[in-house]
Design a protein around this nucleic acid. Structure first.
Lengths: 213, 213
DNA sequence: GTCTATATTTGGATAGAC
DNA sequence: GTCTATCCAAATATAGAC
């Protein structure tokens, strides 16, 4: 049982309303601030994010931010967690068929698109180039969970050897990275994802055959 | 004829010494500053570089930096140019044999090692994640030259189609990127370079055969 | 919860003496 | 060329009134 559930029970016993409208409003404002933060980060670069700009965008003064987040890094951390949740959501919603190559394509297309559609998020989650920032234990747990889910999918497909996993991650992040840095908004590398997976799949098959033969 | 050559001639006619010991000293100090800047960038992260720290490291006060570089971005630019020159140097010195696969391995190993051995340089040259920095025209010309040389090598090997080039760059940058962010100092992805190139090469051969057949 | 006012820090950059 | 002194701007963060 969580703390908030416990609180709800206590409130019922006291005859208080269960919903805390104040807390709900607080959460809504937090979400609004985060949305603004993403906008700023996308426009000015992740490193160019300032609480000042975020505050201005939501119509507040900078000090008011501290009613919602303890520090700038807390904002980064919340963004990081949001990114992880979104990624985890997409990983779990993948429509897999059991056809190994097809599922491999589906998964890696999802990954590359996820990276490409928001370079600021990509930078925050996968490049970690912000000087003082390191995700909190809670946020990092989300990242671990997402990667584990991804890994179990790959295992189901038959990709379990560490070198094979490493090769896939290199391929997909390479495609995403090139797309973001050399053709933002385009599809020059995006459209190579299927071919890359075919290439990788053929390579895997050859290796396996070679061992068996 | 360059301006400095012209100056040399004028000096000779005036009976002045050709070597300008003051200018030489100036260049030496500039180089020393750049070396310190690299050290700081490697330790504090590229974005964490400050003129203050650089000055302290070379035993100067911050304002003295401005006798050598007009601005902080000028320092970044000089570092960028240095990186390009080093890369160009390695590209031109590649010991190529004419054997396509072998040369492909040699070239990509060089590239990945170049990236991995200095993540700060990698970030500066290939990720471009510093908020205000953009290379000057002169420095960028060096980058273009390096990429063109690399491209002509690949063309000699038979990799000329844009999609093939894009696939190779995705593979190599992906390997470098993963090595840097997930196993700094190790060789988990580094040791996959040869296998990746074999995979790519086999893929290329299949495609060509398919077209011919 | 939001504001004004302010503290603090940091870091880039300039002026002018020596 | 180097220094001291200083400026300026940006940006995080806090105190306390309303």
């Amino acid at each position: 049982m969580t703390v908030s559930e416990l609180c709800a029970i206590v409130l019922i016993m006291l005859g208080e309303p269960i919903r805390d409208r104040r807390a709900e409003r607080h959460e809504r404002t937090k979400a609004e601030i985060l949305e603004a933060a993403w906008d700023i980060a996308r426009a000015a670069g992740l490193a160019g994010l300032t609480l000042r700009d975020v505050a201005h965008r939501v119509g507040m003064r900078p000090p008011s931010m501290y009613s919602y987040f303890d520090s700038k890094n807390a904002v980064y951390d919340a963004m990081y967690a949001q990114g992880c949740r979104e990624f985890l959501d997409r990983v779990t919603r993948l429509a897999l068929t059991g056809d190994a190559l097809r599922d491999l394509k589906t998964g890696s297309r999802m990954f590359v698109e996820f990276c490409v559609e928001d370079p600021a998020r990509y930078q925050l989650m996968f490049q970690r180039t912000i000087p003082g920032f390191e995700p909190s234990a809670e946020s990092y747990a989300l990242a671990v969970q997402a990667l584990r889910t991804m890994g179990s999918h790959l295992a189901k497909i038959g990709i379990a050897a560490p070198e094979a996993l490493d090769m896939v991650t290199a391929l997909t992040t390479g495609l995403a990275d090139q797309q973001i840095s050399n053709d933002p908004g385009g599809d020059r590398w995006l459209k190579l994802v299927d071919e890359a997976m075919e290439m990788f799949f053929a390579h895997m098959s050859n290796r396996t055959q070679g061992r068996l033969g």
